[in-house]
Design a protein around this nucleic acid. Sequence first.
DNA 1: GTGCTCGCTTGATTTTTGTCAAGCCGCCAG
DNA 2: CTGGCGGCTTGACAAAAATCAAGCGAGCAC
Lengths: 236, 236
Amino acid sequence: MRLRPPESDFQNIRSLDLFTEIADQHFDVLMRGAYVQNFPPQIELIAEGDTCDFLHVVLSGSVDLFSSWNGRETSMATVRPVSTFILAATVKDAPYLMSARTLEKSRIVLVPSKDVRSVFDIDPGFARAVVTELAQCYRSVVKNTKDLKLRTSLERLANYILRQQRRAGGATTFELQFEKRRLASFLGMTPENLSRAFKGLQPYGVRVEGSQFVILSQSDLERFAKPNPLIDDYST
Amino acid sequence: MRLRPPESDFQNIRSLDLFTEIADQHFDVLMRGAYVQNFPPQIELIAEGDTCDFLHVVLSGSVDLFSSWNGRETSMATVRPVSTFILAATVKDAPYLMSARTLEKSRIVLVPSKDVRSVFDIDPGFARAVVTELAQCYRSVVKNTKDLKLRTSLERLANYILRQQRRAGGATTFELQFEKRRLASFLGMTPENLSRAFKGLQPYGVRVEGSQFVILSQSDLERFAKPNPLIDDYST
DNA sequence: GTGCTCGCTTGATTTTTGTCAAGCCGCCAG
DNA sequence: CTGGCGGCTTGACAAAAATCAAGCGAGCAC
């Protein structure tokens, strides 16, 4: 089942921000120890608390990061191609704080954590990329915390819709990429409340039909949502 | 007002995890560009959205990191000596996501961000320390998010009390280091609800008198709080 | 087709949390 | 001492969110 990554995957991985500045021979070191694997949907890749043996790179498909406590569970983030996850656990050699499961059929590269750490120590370009990526991750979580603590669930949903619209290229119609129950969990609410929240946004020109979102009035929605780059712009 | 750090401060800064592995001459570079300053209480040091010119190091006193949106405000973290803040904005050269204000009279070192970035590129020991520190920060925020999303406010308070107890060396009696209103904000609740939550923990053996916390029954409190290292252990 | 599952929705209800208003109390200036 | 201020608490109430229960409807096995 486990295979060395073929040439075609190399290019995908190499094109990641994390690997653009790495020296060729160091990239080769990482890839020599790496495995690529195809997973079916709904497979638990890692469990929180486990020790961290591999940095994961999602080449295709998508992965849900989630956490549990006392019988409750919450979705923390969705990882889409091409990006990495659990970089922090990798560099700290600490246990995972989140579990991960495939949402759909996914192709994933596993790079041994100790290789990542040793290349970090000898390749300044890679070191800079790791620190930039980590800072990016940190800032994303901080933004998420601000979203959770400063906004009501209706405001979170409104801003989520605006962010997804931006990701979809600004179109007034776009698709939700996963189940509504997962969206509810990500936004910190119950599926029932998400249903009601969709209705609550109708007065601001939002229509939801199945997994299709339609924004009838951009200005009304934005006036209500009050998006802020220091919360909603995930690129900085 | 602005002064180069005197020798006595050097030792404090040098002893930070961030600077133990840095080469002497690189540490000197950072300190040559640095300023040390004493601030009175309640001074806003940085405002979210500002560009990041300095890495901040708290030598004494304490600093509150907080964020605002749409007229609301929430406390994100408290920084105590000796540690740094806004490392992520520094390495990314991106705008601050949080504002910072002194809680009490505080002594703070300001290290120019560009010096931090340039030393990062030439000093592998420092680079490793930066990435470790950032990973630590990231993991702390993830834990905080899990706390917020998986627990009720009463459970958050119970676990907060247990964490503070640990910080205080495990004693059954210890002091809250700041105002209750700030604790309420940090825990994501109103001051009124915090008051009621204190009462709600009385059946589990928690007594609050002024800023004094007394744990009458460790086991009852722990049975209710269900602390978990993947949320409550800030050292890993 | 029928019957089933599963995710989503809806309504009724309870629980939790926030808001508003008032009062208490320690602290400090005058 | 006295008065005022600010933080904390309390109670009554309103809003938000979770829970419970039922029903809908698309997809699928048979």
